[in-house]
Amino acid sequence: MRMDLIQGLALISSLILGIIPFAILGLALGYLLNPKSADSILSLSLIVIPIACGSIPLPVPQIVQDLIAFSPFYHFRQLILSAINLNHDNHLILHLLWLLWACGAFGLLAAWSYQRDRTV
């Protein structure tokens, strides 16, 4: 696969911007869950994440396909696809705003779980 410098920078910046909410979610889960349950959470996420981002087409009802559009994983996938100009839906601002919202929501969850962990 060949790409020019601008497309490579867009891909790297999309990867960095898209991973921030999920890093914050990882911090929140680290405070909420028992360390012994990390293996089961990671195993489950290997199944849930590809379905949640819509990369595995499954014959599911329309309501489930509509719910996938609310997943931050879906918006991260669309951000990456738009960076490499490959079959994306041309709603870049929407995907960036959705990831920003997810960053704020996961940040609030991480702050709450940290306070909960400190008091326990």
Rank of each mutant, 00 (worst) to 15 (best):
N34C: 04
N34G: 04
S37W: 10
A38F: 12
D39M: 13
D39Q: 15
D39L: 14
D39C: 12
S40F: 09
S40P: 06
S40T: 15
S40I: 15
I41W: 06
I41A: 06
I41Y: 07
I41R: 04
L42K: 13
L42Q: 13
L42H: 12
L42I: 14
S43K: 09
S43A: 13
S43I: 15
L44W: 13
S45E: 15
I47Q: 05
V48F: 05
I51F: 01
I51N: 00
G54R: 00
G54K: 00
G54I: 03
S55R: 06
I56D: 06
P59E: 14
P59T: 14
P59V: 14
V60T: 07
V60M: 03
V60F: 00
P61S: 02
P61K: 01
P61A: 00
P61N: 02
P61E: 02
Q62E: 12
Q62M: 09
I63T: 11
I63G: 01
I63F: 03
V64T: 11
Q65W: 07
D66L: 06
D66W: 06
L67Y: 06
L67F: 07
L67E: 09
A69R: 08
F70L: 05
F70C: 05
F70V: 13
S71N: 05
P72T: 07
P72R: 00
F73G: 00
F73N: 00
H75F: 01
F76M: 08
F76T: 10
R77L: 07
R77S: 04
Q78Y: 03
Q78I: 10
Q78L: 05
L79P: 00
L79V: 07
I80F: 05
I80C: 05
L81A: 08
L81K: 05
S82W: 02
S82P: 01
I84V: 14
I84S: 03
I84K: 01
N85V: 14
N85G: 08
N85M: 11
L86R: 13
H88W: 08
H88P: 05
D89M: 05
D89Q: 06
N90V: 10
H91L: 10
I93D: 04
L94I: 15
H95N: 03
L97R: 05
L97C: 13
W98F: 08
W98G: 00
L99N: 00
L100N: 03
L100C: 04
L100G: 03
L100D: 04
C103M: 11
G104Q: 11
A105M: 13
A105E: 11
F106N: 01
L108F: 11
L108P: 08
L109M: 10
L109V: 14
A111F: 10
A111T: 15
A111H: 08
W112Q: 11
W112Y: 12
S113V: 13
Y114H: 10
Q115E: 12
Q115P: 04
Q115M: 11
R116K: 09
D117S: 11
D117M: 09
D117K: 08
R118G: 06
